[in-house]
């Protein structure tokens, strides 16, 4: 025991620093916790509980939903729709944005159309999509994919067009063919824009799916929330929202991690956007 003491003492500063580091990371949680505390306090005092429920009731409802498995089919349906809609939207957006960014000729023909559709409120398409793709997952995937598509497209298109002309010329003189130019210049130069588009698109994919499910669905979190709100079950509504929130935060966290990993050069160079 005695001979352990010195080494513990020597290591002391390190854990202290990490504790402080963790504490610093927890600070952003404080406003959220304060809000939850206020909510708990105000419910039944300032506002009737039947309107706003309260955190403990929401937590209990969440537990119940998972314990009975009631939420699982909804969760499963929505997760599938989200993943598919997001993936299709991202893939389409990257491909189209890249193609139009690289080819001025394609861009001249298609850019006006894309920009025109960009302005259309996609949510207004929900009823149409239900007619076209049915009330199953198809319509939700389509709605979410189209919202994601435009966002990603726009970012990637801008990114590819912003590639430094001089660097492209230099690389050609150094001996690059078109394939090498893509690999060594266009893809890495566009990567920050792809990542940004992908990150911004996460909440939009959720909006697309949930609006679709609100409009008409047989299963899904959106439907669950819709039913809960029309049967005066505020705890259920908030439980559904909490699940969505967890999903968005989790996905955003993963995207930020991926971004930091792929774009290490930006963080190291100190030229990255401050939010990554």
């Amino acid at each position: 025991m005695t001979d352990l003491a010195p080494s513990t003492a020597a290591q002391a500063p390190a854990p202290r620093r990490t504790i402080r580091g963790y504490a610093a990371r927890l600070v952003p949680l404080l406003p959220g916790l304060a809000l939850i505390a206020f909510w708990q306090w105000a419910s039944g005092r300032l506002v009737r509980e039947v309107y706003v429920s309260k955190p403990t009731a929401v937590a209990a409802r969440l537990y119940e939903l998972f314990a009975t498995g009631e939420i699982v089919p909804h969760l499963w349906t929505t997760a599938q729709e989200l993943v598919l809609g997001y993936a299709i939207g991202v893939a389409g957006g990257v491909a189209a944005g890249y193609a139009l960014g690289r080819s001025p000729r394609l861009a001249r023909v298609f850019e006006p159309y894309v920009m025109a559709f960009y302005g259309v409120p996609k949510i207004a398409l929900a009823p149409l999509f239900i007619i076209w793709f049915g009330i199953g997952p198809g319509s939700k995937i389509a709605l979410s994919a189209i919202m994601v598509f435009f966002l990603v497209f726009y970012n990637v298109y801008t990114g590819v067009r912003a590639v430094d002309r001089e660097i492209v010329d230099l690389t050609l003189v150094m001996g690059a063919n078109q394939r090498q130019l893509t690999r060594h210049v266009y893809l890495p130069a566009a990567a920050p824009f792809v990542m940004l588009g992908m990150r911004l698109a996460i909440p939009y994919s959720v909006i697309g799916v949930i609006v679709g499910e609100f409009t008409s669905a047989t299963q899904g979190l959106g439907l669950f929330i819709h039913v809960a709100s029309s049967t005066y079950d505020p705890a259920g509504v908030f439980a559904g929202i909490a699940i969505l929130l967890a999903f968005v935060l989790g996905a955003g966290f993963l995207a930020a991690r991926l971004e930091r990993r792929l774009l290490r050069w930006r963080t190291l160079s100190g030229v990255g956007p401050s939010e990554i």
Binding site: I167, D169, L170, P188, W265, S269
Partner: peptide, 28 residues
């Protein structure tokens, strides 16, 4: 491709390390 070009700004590839930058013409 038989010439080399040194522009006014260095124009290194920001996404490559120095060694990767210098290596690129040989790789290509």
């Amino acid at each position: 491709r038989a010439v080399g070009f040194v522009p006014q700004q260095a124009k290194l590839f920001p996404w490559k390390t120095l060694a990767e930058n210098v290596e690129l013409p040989l790789l290509l």
